[in-house]
Structures are given as structure tokens and as C-alpha cells.
Design a protein around this nucleic acid. Structure first.
Lengths: 196, 196
DNA sequence: CGCGGGTTTGATGATGCTCAAGCCCGGTGG
DNA sequence: CCACCGGGCTTGAGCATCATCAAACCCGCG
């Protein structure tokens, strides 16, 4: 149960939470070990879980009509991930959510999520703040995609999320940036050459 | 006060709200008329307000280092808009939020927003749901930008948000799609030619 | 009538993609 | 212990999409 301290710390960053509320929440969740390449959510099925990462790396991606993967979220320790739309609406998922390495997650079902929000008011507040921050980040992301070149976006990613850059292979980063692995390779070469 | 019914309807889509809670919320807000081109939030200043549109059109955009505008949100009647990051953190805004036509908005200050969330629990819930849906939409948007061509994104915009397409000039739509007005013009021509 | 913003159209250019080959390196089996 | 295999990264050549620069056009409004 040591790892649950990561969650407690994460919660306390946003809200003041009592030990008993924390206990109550934990009782609505389960912890699961995922092996590398295991799927938490499969496209076409309903997303049953939302996950909080205790360790490891996960990603959410769409597969387009040419079979190309497009990663739009990468989560590491302390992040939440799911196909939120499917999870909340119980419609089939549009995305896959996959462990990119062996990963330990705490998961909560939709029903228990609703219970937590309704019965433990601090969680209604917590998730309001969590989604609020997530929305701000995604808005910035869209704005950055429009305003900046691939090279600028890569440099920003390296400086703002070094932990993510460290945790995943380069072709995942390329997908996350919306470019091909070959292009990222060339961009990195370009950057390296500029320092010579 | 007739227009406030738009807000009441909007709230009731997500939560069950009593008349007295609605009254309390209204008392924390003001209504304002904005003229076309008037700014609700100015880049570099703190965003004091979050706005709910009762009528009209507004947009949020970044200005890049070459002076180009990049619109990443367009709001019409029944939508909320602000520079959320600045509004919530009280840091200087990164974006401008502008009336694209004469617009009537209901605005709420950060302090009153916090009061509403703390004291009227249905609003904590309402904003949780609002931000939750906003986050889902933005995630989809990022995923779409990565998976689809400009033409596909335009066609999707036309079919999913016809009211927005109707409400704003073409060069705003181009910016919202992340392309230049010239390119949108060519895309539209291309589409028209395919029907001949 | 003429001005001005918005849209269209054309010619050219930059960025990132596609197809293809080679390389690097860690893991596996002989 | 080494040879081989395969995935991921790199590199090259040609291509597609959208941007840029520039000019013409359209149309509502003063």
C-alpha cells in the first residue's frame, strides 16, 4: 500500500482531504498491474475504467483509416488517463489506452466515480479542479499546434516535460507531436547541428 | 431578464437546480453588452471575467511572434469563454478574447466563481461537468488535427457546428481550422468542383 | 462613385510525408 | 561467445499539402 501515498500527495496538491475521506475513496478503487502493451481501454468497447498511474507509462491514441496511430496523451506517475468520453457516456471508445511499459494503476469504475463525486464533496471539487486544469492544458496544446513549428513544439516538450521525454521511445514522442519518426529524427539532427 | 432563461436552460441540461440557487448565482454575476471588436480579455493583462454568451459571437486567439492570429475557440449563444488559465491563476493572459459581433454576455469574477463553487454545491458539480465536457472536446480536437486533413476538418466543422460556420466570416473559420484564408478558399472550391 | 475588407486565383516555396535502404544495438539461440 | 535477427533510429530522394507573395475581383457602405 506504500504507493498510495503518491495519490494522497496528488490529491493534497489540489484539495484538503481528511484521512477518512481518503480511505473512503480508496475503497471505491482497485489497483492493477498492467504488462507492457496491455490495453486498459480498447477502441469499440466501452471504457470501464479511469486510471491513476502509480508507476510506469501509458498512452491514449487513435488509429486512423490508414492504420496509423496518433498518440494524443502520454501519462506517467501521478497522471490520470482513460477515454473520458466513453467512460462518462458509456458509448464505445474511439481510442485505445495502452501501457507503454509495465505499469501499476489505481482504477475506478464509472459508478464508483459518480459515488465519490456525490458522496464525498471534496472529490466533486477535486475532479472539477482536475478537469479544469486538463482543459486549460489542452487549449494551450491546440493553440501551440497552430502557432508553432514541429521543431518549436519538440523543444518545448523537452523543456516542459522532460520526464515524459525520458520515459518513452522517440517514435512515440513523434506521434505525440503529430509528426512521423523520420521527421523527428531530422529535427533532432538539425538541432544538434546548430550547436556545432 | 428574459435572456437569463438561456442560462437556466443551459444549467438544467447538466444539473437539477432550484430557483433559489439560480437566483443566488445570478446575484454573483453581471450582464454586459460588448460591441464588435471589443476585448473581454487582453493579452498581458489578468483575465478578470469568465463569460457566458446570451447572444452574439466571441473568439479566443493567440497572436504569434509574426503577428498572426490563431483562433482556438469560437463561442456562440450558450457557450462559456475566457482565458481560463489567466482567470484562474491571476497570471497575465496569453490570449485575447474578443467579441466578433455585438454580443451580450453574463460575466462572473474569479472571486464570485469561487464563492459559487464553495457555497452552492450544485455549481461545483455544474462546473465539474462543464470542464469535463470541455476537456473531452479538446482531446478530440487534438486527435482530429493529427488524424485528418484540412479538408476533412472543414467538412466535419460544417456538419457538426453549422451554427458556428454560419456566424463568422470565412477567415475566422480558417484560423480556427489552423489554416490560411487562401487555403480554405481553395478547399471550398475543390469541394464545390467535386459536385459538378 | 470609389474605398476597403474579404474572398478568389495564380505562381512559387517550405515543411513534413512517403518510400526505401542502411545502420545501430540489445536479445536470443546455436 | 558469437552470429543472427528485429525493432528503432537515421538518412536520402522525390512528393503532397499548405504557406507565402501578389494581384484581381466582389460587394456593401459612406
Amino acid at each position: 500500500m506504500k504507493n498510495l501515498e503518491i495519490l494522497r500527495k496528488h490529491l493534497k496538491l489540489k484539495v484538503d482531504i481528511s484521512d477518512s475521506d481518503f480511505e473512503k475513496f480508496i475503497n471505491l478503487t482497485e489497483t492493477v498491474q498492467l504488462k507492457k502493451h496491455e490495453l486498459l481501454v480498447r477502441e469499440g468497447r466501452v471504457a470501464k475504467w479511469q486510471a491513476f498511474l502509480l508507476s510506469g507509462v501509458m498512452g491514449a491514441y487513435a488509429v486512423d483509416n490508414k492504420g496509423q496511430k496518433h498518440i494524443f496523451q502520454i501519462a506517467i506517475e501521478g497522471h490520470w488517463i482513460s477515454d473520458l468520453y466513453s467512460y462518462l457516456s458509456k458509448e464505445p471508445a474511439l481510442y485505445n489506452v495502452e501501457a507503454f511499459a509495465d505499469t501499476e494503476v489505481l482504477i475506478i469504475s464509472k459508478d464508483n466515480f459518480e459515488i465519490a463525486c456525490k458522496n464525498i464533496s471534496v472529490f466533486e471539487r477535486f475532479f472539477r479542479l482536475l478537469f479544469q486544469n486538463g482543459l486549460i492544458q489542452q487549449q494551450r496544446r491546440v493553440s501551440n499546434i497552430y502557432s508553432e513549428s514541429a521543431e518549436e513544439r519538440y523543444l518545448k516538450l523537452v523543456s516542459e516535460k522532460p520526464d515524459i521525454v525520458q520515459s518513452v521511445p522517440q517514435h512515440y514522442l513523434a506521434s505525440f507531436l503529430g509528426i512521423k519518426p523520420q521527421s523527428l529524427s531530422r529535427i533532432r539532427k538539425q538541432i544538434a547541428d546548430n550547436y556545432k
